[in-house]
Design a protein around this nucleic acid. Structure first.
Length: 339
DNA sequence: ATTGCCGGGTT
DNA sequence: AACCCGGCAAT
């Protein structure tokens, strides 16, 4: 599984080498000129070439080197205007997630076809658009032209590969409690036939759409009757949030006791164009915070129940105080006889 | 009353 | 840091 993840990661250019120390394994057959012009300062960051063509079109003064995976990821997401994720990211920071890297490394954005009885999942939006266009919409043109209609029929989902595999492996074959399997889509296919747009991820995901589909489409979204004929009914438990510029919705797998071990948390949201979201709206959705309990603890917290073991004082007595451990001598918690 | 030690000092 | 101790809670 890990190999699979790595493989799929290495195919998407944005997901850079998590370990900056290792020399980038990505063969940079493409552009080399820019690298030379930038010379030494870039020597360590070969994997970061998100294909601006050899001619440096005004490389910004801060060349945005390949950041750690986390940062680039959150950058990507935030540039999509996705506050959901950003929210949870922030939460991570706030709670000092001890292993944020591992968790985020295993997140992958996939695109799922929502057409009835079609669970196709592709790893690129262009791929899924093409799929919908050709298979479902019957547009046999293989050009990349998109009138934006495909957007209605797929959703962008974010999958935690780790927990996915974990959950799958932990499923006892006869487990009765898992009678109703969580609505996780079928096993993600690895980078399918991905034509041309291999570097789509280098750019905010909706670029191709926002080019061809201006904001008018948002209008269409709201009063379009597509909901009646929508290929897939929106999950009942989903929270639907409506903003003035369009529909955005988030969906989250059934409530999971989130205690330490992350459940199969996946997020689905319909891909929208020109989504102008307001952060406040999203706070309600997909806010899985790790805080253990609503522990108010305003005053002096409940004391420890006092251990069973005898402590220095009891063992040696007051007359041999010099034999106590220092903590005991200082009236602190005994270090020698811990519980 | 005794014991353990937290919270808050002082050096 | 190291060291000390008032005072509280558990015993």
């Amino acid at each position: 599984m890990a190999a699979t993840v790595l493989t799929s990661l290495s195919t998407s250019p944005l997901v850079l080498n998590p370990t900056s120390g290792a020399p980038a394994a990505v063969p940079e057959a493409t552009s080399r000129g820019w690298k030379e012009s930038l010379s030494a300062s870039y020597s360590s960051s070969t994997s970061g070439n998100w294909s601006w063509d050899a001619s440096d079109q005004s490389v910004p003064s801060t060349p945005s080197p390949p950041l750690s995976n986390d940062v680039s990821k959150s950058f990507l997401l935030s540039s999509q205007g996705d506050d959901n994720i950003e929210e949870s990211e922030t939460t991570h920071f706030l709670f000092e997630d001890p292993i944020p890297r591992k968790r985020k490394n295993s997140m992958k954005v996939m695109f799922k076809c929502l057409w009835k009885n079609c669970d196709k999942v592709l790893s690129t939006s262009s791929g899924i658009q093409r799929h919908i266009r050709t298979v479902h919409l019957g547009r046999n043109s293989d050009s990349d032209y998109s009138d934006g209609e495909e957007d209605f029929y797929y959703s962008e989902i974010e999958v935690n590969m780790d927990t996915l595999s974990e959950g799958l492996s932990s499923l006892t074959p006869t487990s009765p409690t898992t009678a109703a399997p969580p609505p996780i889509f079928p096993a993600p296919e690895l980078p399918h036939s991905e034509p041309a747009q291999i570097n789509l991820r280098g750019v905010p995901c909706h670029t191709p759409l926002s080019q061809s589909a201006p904001s008018t489409l948002c209008h269409i979204r709201t009063d379009h009757a597509y909901q009646a004929t929508a290929p897939v009914s929106i999950p009942v438990s989903s929270k639907l949030i409506q903003s003035e510029s369009g529909i955005s919705m988030s969906w989250q797998s059934p409530p999971i006791i989130f205690k330490g071990l992350p459940g199969p948390v996946s997020q689905i949201r319909t891909v929208g164009i020109g989504e102008k979201r307001q952060p406040a709206q999203h706070a309600t959705v997909t806010k899985i915070h790790t805080s253990a309990a609503p522990v108010p603890k305003p005053s002096t917290g409940a004391r420890k129940p006092r251990g069973e073991a005898k402590k220095c004082r009891k063992v040696y007595g007051m007359e041999k105080k010099d034999m106590w451990c220092t903590a005991c001598r200082w009236k602190k918690a005994c270090q020698r006889f811990t519980d």
